[in-house]
Amino acid sequence: MLHRFANPARFLRIARWVVPWSASLGLVSGAAGLYLGLAGSPADYQQGDTVRIMYVHVPAAWMALAAYATMALASAVALIWKHPLADLIAKSTAPIGATFTAIALITGALWGQPTWGTWWVWDARLTSVLILLFLYVGYLALWNAFDDPTRAARAAAVLALVGVVNLPIIKFSVDWWNTLHQPASVLKIGGPTIHPAMLTPLLLMALAFLCYFITLLLLRVRGELAARKLRALQAARAEG
């Protein structure tokens, strides 16, 4: 199954077909989610309009975790089965995931100031997400620290796998320890504790973020493949 998709030519064919669909689905759900989130949904009984920050903050945080999981999975496939595409997928995921993490941290600070009364606290949830950002940045730095792409890929893949430990810590930090950050509202036992009028725009925005991630990832991998081809051609020309 994996071997089928490890073929770059087949990957490019699939990507060319998926990108228009994921891009348009992302645009439509993003437009609907933004409209419902900013105008078509009620204010919260306690937070007032500040609750609308959630429609960006929560999808960004989910995708920050999902992107890391993707990156770690691709890294594991690259380390174990040495598929030529897996390294490129992992490498292409990192900047996108880092951006999602930064968005989650910044929007969280903007929400924390009016709600909690502070931009930042060193509680377990906030600190572990900050560590996630550092993992992404460290991963990218490691890729650029080696001249030999094969060695860079291996070192970065090991770092990505080590960082997986952080994912359950982020998810369960709010249950394991006393934190200022509230526990999960949507992905929890017993169903969401968000009113449907607020859950709808949230899920639409989550779909938009997911589509955006898929689109951007496929485009980046396509770019990486083109860059690799170019390097090979230049090397062949220098020899010939």
């Binding site: 204010a43 937070q47 909690w116 509202s185 009113h195 009028a197 607020m198």
Partner: peptide, 11 residues
């Protein structure tokens, strides 16, 4: 600091 819980609903 105020702590917010996981419940979101219209007034």
């Amino acid at each position: 600091l105020a702590k917010h819980d996981e419940n979101y609903m219209p007034p």
